[in-house]
Design a binder for these strands. Sequence first.
DNA 1: GTGGTCTAGACCACT
DNA 2: GTGGTCTAGACCACG
Lengths: 130, 130, 130, 130
Amino acid sequence: MLISLQLDSEVPLYEQLRNQIVLGIAKGQLKPGEKLPTVRQLAEDLGINSMTVNKAYALLKQENVIRIDRRHGAKVNFPPYKTADDAIAVAELEQKLELIIAEANLEGIAADTFRSICERIYSNMTVKRV
Amino acid sequence: MLISLQLDSEVPLYEQLRNQIVLGIAKGQLKPGEKLPTVRQLAEDLGINSMTVNKAYALLKQENVIRIDRRHGAKVNFPPYKTADDAIAVAELEQKLELIIAEANLEGIAADTFRSICERIYSNMTVKRV
Amino acid sequence: MLISLQLDSEVPLYEQLRNQIVLGIAKGQLKPGEKLPTVRQLAEDLGINSMTVNKAYALLKQENVIRIDRRHGAKVNFPPYKTADDAIAVAELEQKLELIIAEANLEGIAADTFRSICERIYSNMTVKRV
Amino acid sequence: MLISLQLDSEVPLYEQLRNQIVLGIAKGQLKPGEKLPTVRQLAEDLGINSMTVNKAYALLKQENVIRIDRRHGAKVNFPPYKTADDAIAVAELEQKLELIIAEANLEGIAADTFRSICERIYSNMTVKRV
DNA sequence: GTGGTCTAGACCACT
DNA sequence: GTGGTCTAGACCACG
């Protein structure tokens, strides 16, 4: 799986890394149960500090996306990664979407364009929940 | 129009303010051509520093959402607020959506739930582009 | 409020710091709404690195014990600091207590001694829930 | 007696193992004088490194919970496993309890709930010291 | 060799 | 001046 970081982005490196791993899992490039690179290895590959990778892993662990086994390093957990409350997860999703749709709308992107983008994205996700 | 800020949020105040104004326009609570409060007034109403409001207005101006007339204060522009290139806008949208859909997917939110949330949001937007 | 860290303890510094703050709140030495020292200030006072204090604060923030306001630094939240599920909190408490009671038992500490210790501790807590 | 280890726990394996044995004794599943499995046997049963079991046994031996006889393997000692000083044991217990009670308190767990949990645990301990 | 912790010093965004 | 982020390099506990 390919990971590319933008060093000049406003998004912190550890968050970019977390996002790419989440995307990788959703797209099937990282399979549940699969072993992630070690902190040091990944840090070296990406040319960043190991504490930064550490922070990304700690975040993913807290989100229940990966588990850290003292013996074998980090492994991908099996979804779904339930949050405390489903209703809360949906509410947060709705809030994020509301802003994104508002922006898309004001930029002149048609609702149908938006819908087809969503469908295209869904068709690339391996963990489908119709 | 009601604006509420979360002082302990990770989202910067000026960005929260910008987001709420964008949402207000998309939902029709702020009409194109309408005058916005002065920087000083809004800062006082919200109990925040006027520099923060200034920063939000500057951001909105740069995004072509409002125009600032020295004599008449800030006014809402008429959408669509075209970005430099439509393709870029769509690509950015797609990237944001990809992450959000990946997260929703891994949290166990079904695609149909996602779609219905989108439709509900669209039905509350006044500037519709079917 | 007095904070003392043991540099040679097995408990990480950031966790010791977190524990002392939690204790301080429960004992009423830190009141809800009260402002905590800045990260740098506390780090200097304790003679430790500011990242360590940062980590303690981040942990407390995640546990909903404090909130971090970009303008005024960290403040103590109002208890109770609900966890996701009350039943889970009780189960975790029970597991911790089981081990402690087992150890006390095997060390020859009588149940009544244990009970009176508990009562003495409770009498020093300001946030009482009889 | 059943021993289950969490490989992804933050508690070291050897400490989990030690805790479970202590619990087993307090609950009467392991009787004083009873023979423990050999290091090698237990390691194989649990699927972990024998060094880990060794470390747990060494810890228990140091705590005077078990004795290790080269001919007969490890055996459970008869409680109480006196520490150097009773006052020290009580002081340590008090410190642990103080933090746990503070946390329970701030989580909104009532003192009576706490007390009844303690009583329930005590009723499951075979080595009672009223 | 693994992750976890800590340090000293730096830069940045926000207010 | 605040917290947040990142680096380079170090030590430790665990297995």
